[in-house]
Design a protein around this nucleic acid. Structure first.
Lengths: 127, 127
DNA sequence: CGGCATCCCCAGCGATACTG
DNA sequence: CAGTATCGCTGGGGATGCCG
């Protein structure tokens, strides 16, 4: 199984341990609400900072910068600064970013497909 | 696009607005590190509370209960209590839970496939 | 064993303001 | 317009202890 190391941890080989802890780190970076929503918002497009902000409902200026930095650092988004005045900064998904987006799409799709089931499950549970 | 409403929000129809806010809520529930790791840990298996705890590195007792409750409430995991002493509580993914798991698998797979790329991207960025 | 409640603390986040 | 910095709060989450 491809995820074995991510979950089990504690392989004996030192290189594997390093790779695994790196994988955990990346997973933690990426598996959070804002990061996923930003990736989904970017899609195939190139957006400016405030355009992303408008696409991602409820995100604060600060959270957006933080997450964009993190995604840039991990090579998931490309940040292009145009040296104009006023500044113009454009964000685009890189190839790895687009690859991850298909997984995010799957989650979004899943969410919509199971809305009804979940709503009724909640109904039963809350009773 | 299947995710349009999740991202754009503000549809004019009242029912759509409700559905969309519900979708956002579910997405926020599900798109977090611990929930995804728990789903991945369960996989096709049935695990007891402390077994899940052992599979999910670093999760606290409290976080595990909270997330399991949340997943149960949303109908993603089934919780079965055996009235024995000491108690025995088993958790299993429901059908929707297993469906979501394929998306989580994709993320895990993606993580491993891009380890090298990400590591080098970090190297450049940090310089 | 698993769950719930309580306490407590720190990091995460929002708000605000200032720079290029 | 975009980014950084600072401040202040609140709530997330860890630790602990007690029940069924």
């Amino acid at each position: 199984m491809v995820t074995k190391q991510l979950l089990k941890g504690l392989p004996e080989d030192a290189d594997l341990r390093r790779a695994d802890s790196l994988a955990r780190e990346i997973f933690s970076d990426v598996a959070n609400k804002w990061a996923l929503l930003i990736i989904e918002a970017l899609g195939e497009r190139t957006l400016r900072f405030n355009e992303v902000r408008n696409e991602v409902e409820g995100i604060s200026h600060k959270m957006l910068t933080q997450n964009l930095r993190m995604l840039e650092r991990n090579g998931l988004v490309d940040r292009k600064v145009h040296p104009t005045v006023p500044p113009r900064v454009e964000y685009t998904l890189t190839e790895p970013g687009r690859a991850l987006r298909t997984a995010v799409d799957a989650i979004c799709g899943w969410t919509h497909q199971h809305l009804a089931h979940i709503e009724s499950a909640r109904g039963s549970f809350d009773a």
